[in-house]
């Protein structure tokens, strides 16, 4: 077990190193460095050139790329993600600000997905092949094929513009500061509706199908037959004995998809003017804000690797038959 953990940690570190090197070089190869973008507005060529050189020096762009990379790693080791090239603010502060809008939508959407798809999944599994099972799975399948930004555009057009029911730009209305606390909460809640829906509906088909499939597998097991033979009611058999045992793969599924949800959706956040990580990412790419891009890449990679690792470990803890020795 210990050797397995060590081996995974070492390969994980190698992967992280690879990711950071590759993204560092890709970013640097993109033409148009931040100093150039920021000085492009200066009319006087001599001044522009002087400021350009000063900025390059300030950002450390005048040094060779390997040296820049070494400096980046040296700072990273002590937890310093650097400052943004665009507005000079700490990258950690920028990410911290954008984290909550993305995270809150992601969490809300996850809760909604589970709340809706669990009963659907259980019910479909119990009535496998029945009318409910087939019609709901067809309906959800159609929904699954609606791309989330396509749904976003339609919702904005109809609910936002034509019928003027819900707000769709940003997190807050204009007069937010003058509202009462209750009014502020109501305002915030309204802004969450459309974007949360867009993040949620596509997952419903996937999750309910997943829950249904797992439950069907578990229902065939001997201990479920035993529970039935003992004379337990159907309700107790399904919910207590079968469903709880079908939860494990669900948990690992949530774990595996979460890092990607956290990186946000560039298009959706841009469309809804949502101040989250996806939008921050898009803007950083446009501004060639190297430190922010690097930090976001690194954090996503770290999350993906970390969560996969934890998921693999919990498999072993939950299911003693899995062995980590080769």
């Amino acid at each position: 077990m210990l050797s397995y953990i060590l081996r995974r940690l070492v390969t994980g570190l190698v992967t992280l190193f690879g990711i950071s090197v590759i993204s560092f070089f890709i970013i640097q190869l993109v033409p148009g460095d931040p100093a150039q973008i920021q000085t492009s507005q200066i009319a006087d060529a001599a001044v522009s050139e002087r400021v350009y050189q000063q900025l390059r020096e300030l950002y450390g762009l005048d040094k060779p790329i390997p040296v820049q990379y070494a400096n980046w790693v040296r700072k990273l080791v002590v937890g310093d993600l650097g400052s943004s090239f665009h507005d000079g603010r700490r990258v950690s502060a920028k990410i911290g600000e954008a984290l909550w809008p993305t995270l809150s939508v992601a969490l809300l959407s996850f809760m909604l997905t589970l709340l809706i798809s669990t009963p659907i999944g259980i019910y479909s599994a119990l009535r496998q092949g029945g009318g409910f099972d087939r019609s709901v799975s067809t309906g959800l399948y159609m929904l699954y094929s609606v791309p989330n930004y396509v749904a976003g555009m339609l919702l904005i057009l109809y609910l936002g513009v034509k019928w003027d029911l819900l707000p769709f730009r940003g997190m807050r209305s204009d007069g937010y500061d003058e509202m009462t606390t209750l009014g502020q909460m109501w305002d915030l809640a309204q802004h969450y509706v459309l974007i949360t829906f867009c993040f949620t509906f596509g997952n419903l088909a996937y999750y309910s199908r997943f829950i249904r499939q797992n439950l069907l597998e578990v229902v065939r097991q001997d201990y479920v037959r035993t529970a039935r033979a003992k004379g337990l009611g159907e309700r107790s058999v399904v919910l207590k004995h079968a469903f709880t045992n079908s939860l494990i793969p669900l948990i690992s599924l949530i774990g595996l998809t979460f890092p990607f949800v956290l990186s946000g959706s560039v298009i959706l956040e841009y469309m809804f003017n949502w101040p989250g990580l996806g939008r921050l990412y898009f803007e950083s790419v446009l501004q060639r804000d190297y430190p922010t891009i690097m930090a976001l890449n690194f954090i996503t990679a770290l999350l993906v690797l970390g969560i996969t690792f934890i998921a693999d470990l919990t498999y072993g803890l939950v299911d003693p038959r899995i062995s980590y020795e080769k």
């Binding site: 890709i26 148009g32 990607f260 990186s263 560039v266 996806g278 790419v285 446009l286």
Partner: peptide, 13 residues
């Protein structure tokens, strides 16, 4: 491990 949109956006930039 890259954010799905990153490579695309970076290369397209």
């Amino acid at each position: 491990c890259f954010p799905p949109f990153f490579l695309i956006l970076a290369v397209l930039a």
